[in-house]
Design a protein around this nucleic acid. Sequence first.
DNA 1: CGGTATCCGTAGCGATACTG
DNA 2: CAGTATCGCTACGGATACCG
Lengths: 122, 122
Amino acid sequence: MESKKAKNNININCSELLSLTLVKETMQLLSCKWKVQIIAFLLRNGKTRYMGLQRGICGISSRVLSKELQELEQNEIISRTVMDPKLTSVEYELTAHGKTLEGVLLCIANWGAHCKDLFQKK
Amino acid sequence: MESKKAKNNININCSELLSLTLVKETMQLLSCKWKVQIIAFLLRNGKTRYMGLQRGICGISSRVLSKELQELEQNEIISRTVMDPKLTSVEYELTAHGKTLEGVLLCIANWGAHCKDLFQKK
DNA sequence: CGGTATCCGTAGCGATACTG
DNA sequence: CAGTATCGCTACGGATACCG
C-alpha cells in the first residue's frame, strides 16, 4: 500500500519480517474472543458435541460458537464429524495439528503466570 | 488422566481454570491490532522515538499508536522516557519484563512456520 | 516533535427467534 | 440437537485537524 520510508536508520531483514508475519497470522487465528477457550476446552475434554461446548464454555452464544468453530475447522485446527445424519449429533475435536497448539498456549500461560508474580510483588 | 463429566455439567479443576485465565489475559494484552508489531519492532531496534515507531510500523495512525503505547506502558511492557522537557523527544523501549515476551513471540512464530509448512505440503 | 480531540464507518459480539 | 437468521449495539480503528 504505502511506500516504505525506511530511508532512515530502520532496517528490517527478511527473516525478521517473515517471523513477524508469522506472529501476526498466528495471533489472528487465535485472537477472537472465544477461540482459545474452545481450544483449551477440547485439549482438556477431547471430543465434544456442540451443546457440550456451549455448556462448557460459559457465556458463548450459539451464533458465535458456530462461527468460531467454522473458522477453526477451516484452519484445520479442529475437525467436525457428523455422527448422526439427521444432525442430532455432531462431534468436534482437535486435529493432530490443533493439538500442537498446546505448547503455544502453555508458553503463553507461563508468561502470564510470571507476569502476575511480578505485579503481586509490588 | 481422569476427567469428571457430570450428566449436564462439566467440571474443570482449579489449576486448569487458572491457566486458562492466564492464557486469556495474556492474549488480551497482545491481541490489539498493532501491539505485537510494536513489541517486535522494539525487540529488533531497541529504544525508539515516537516518530520512529510510526515510520517503522507501516500504516499505524498517530491516535492508535499513542493509545497502544499507553496500554503497553501501563502493563509495564515498555517504558516511556521524556528526553526533552519540551516534548520534542520521547523514547520508548521494552522493559526487562517486556523483553521476556520474545520467547513467547518466538514460540508463536514457530508454530506459525510449522503451520505454513503443513499447508504447503498439500 | 509528540501527542489529543473529534468524527465516523465498520467489524464483532450478544440476544433472541427460528428451522431441519 | 445443531445450527442460521435477524437485529441492535458498541468498541475498535482510521483519517484528519489541531495543540503545546
